[in-house]
C-alpha cells in the first residue's frame, strides 16, 4: 500500500507569510485563517506534497522535538486542514 501524499488543494486558496506565520484566505468558503509557527514550517511541504513521515521529519528537524510529539502535531494539523477542506483529496 502506498503512503498518502498530503497536498494543499489547487485553486481558490491564497496565502502569504506575515511575521513568520501563514495567513490563508479560503475563497471557496470565504474565510481566512492564520497558521501557527509549526504549521507554517509544514506549509511549504504541503504546497509541493509530502507524506506524513516527511512532515514529521520536517517538524523534528526544525524544532528538535521527538518523533512521537511531532507525529501527534502533524496528525492534528492535517486533520484540521482536512476538516476545513484545504487539502487535495
Amino acid at each position: 500500500m502506498t503512503e498518502r501524499t498530503y497536498r494543499l488543494r489547487d485553486g481558490e486558496l491564497e496565502w502569504r507569510e506575515v511575521e513568520g506565520e501563514i495567513v490563508a484566505l479560503d475563497l471557496r468558503a470565504s474565510t481566512y485563517l492564520s497558521i501557527n509557527k509549526a504549521g507554517t514550517a509544514l506549509w511549504p511541504h504541503l504546497t509541493s506534497g509530502a507524506s506524513r513521515e516527511e512532515l514529521v521529519t520536517a517538524l523534528t528537524s526544525r524544532y528538535g522535538i521527538d518523533a512521537e510529539s511531532a507525529a501527534r502535531d502533524v496528525g492534528a494539523f492535517v486533520r484540521a486542514l482536512e476538516e476545513k477542506g484545504l487539502l487535495a483529496s
Binding site: R16, V18, V23, S34
Partner: peptide, 20 residues
C-alpha cells in the same frame, strides 16, 4: 507570539484585494 486578529484580517483583506 501569535498574530493579532487585526493583522490577520488586514493580511486576508490584502489577499482578497490581490485576487480581485
Amino acid at each position: 507570539m501569535a498574530l493579532s486578529e487585526a493583522t490577520v484580517r488586514a493580511a486576508a483583506r490584502g489577499l482578497a484585494a490581490d485576487v480581485v
